[in-house]
């Protein structure tokens, strides 16, 4: 009986890159006839395998373009890998971008319900926790204002408090802890710590290496789509920092 909640097996992800994007029929047929319809293959992730164990905080580090975000999207089911498979046990709450599915015309109250159902929460649950969400986001006096009038900080706060409404089995966090003022950031971090202590598995992606060192137990280091190293934070992070400064 393995303890892995996420097992990534030999996953590759190719993107077709056309030099000019063909998105109309005329061009498509002209190119088809001329046999110019060749795509350049771009491999964002190639042959990556790892397991994430139950209850651990797993970090993914790497430079820009190393395939971190693609990896997260594959895990959360948004992208389907070209090769390989991903097996996930339990519910995932993706915090890849906050406020996905907000409709600017609607009020905060309406958006809470809409966004809750986007994330697959039952309506009764949102109703029950509605007050808690608004309290956490500190948007008490704005709950009936159309959110097109919100500031970006208010937007992010609302998004975060909906996404962390229930304790999911797996929480995916991508660079979102950089939103809001430092007070709210601290509040977010606290909530994530809360979840971790409650047995939630967390996958964290950030460029903030301090944060990784503070929170993560194990780290995967991606480089140009390949898994360079996998291991305990204490082992990998110094190497990663060293490699970074070497490159400079």
């Amino acid at each position: 009986m393995s303890n892995a909640v996420i097992s990534v097996r030999d996953v590759s992800m190719d993107f077709n890159m056309t030099k000019e994007k063909v998105d109309n029929l005329k061009e498509y047929f002209i190119k088809l006839v001329k046999q110019q319809l060749r795509f350049e293959k771009f491999t964002a992730v190639s042959h990556v395998s790892f397991d994430v164990l139950r209850g651990e905080v797993f970090g993914i580090v790497g430079l820009n373009g190393s395939g971190k975000s693609t990896m997260l999207k594959i895990i959360s089911g948004i992208l389907k890998p070209t090769l390989g498979s991903v097996e996930v046990k339990g519910t995932i709450s993706p915090l890849i971008e906050l406020g996905a599915g907000f409709d600017p015309e609607l009020t905060a109250r309406e958006n809470v319900f809409l966004n809750g159902s986007v994330l697959g929460f039952p309506r009764s649950l949102i109703k029950e926790k509605y007050k808690e969400i608004i309290d956490f986001a500190e948007l008490h006096e704005f709950q009936d204002v159309a959110i097109k009038n919100f500031s970006s900080g208010m937007y992010a706060r609302l998004g975060f408090s909906i996404a962390t409404l229930v304790r999911p089995d797996i929480l995916i966090v991508d660079e979102i802890l950089s939103v809001g003022d430092f007070l709210f950031q601290r509040k977010c971090e606290e909530r994530i710590r809360d979840m971790m202590s409650g047995g939630t598995t967390v996958i964290l992606v950030t460029h903030d290496i301090d944060q990784i060192q503070r929170l993560c137990s194990r780290v995967a280091w991606l480089e140009k789509g390949k898994l360079r190293e996998l291991g305990a934070t204490a082992q990998i992070c110094p190497k990663y920092i060293a490699a970074g400064s070497e490159g400079n």
Partner: peptide, 9 residues
């Protein structure tokens, strides 16, 4: 598109 890119639906 914004939704599809961010969450699985």
């Amino acid at each position: 598109a914004p939704l599809i890119k961010k969450v699985y639906i």
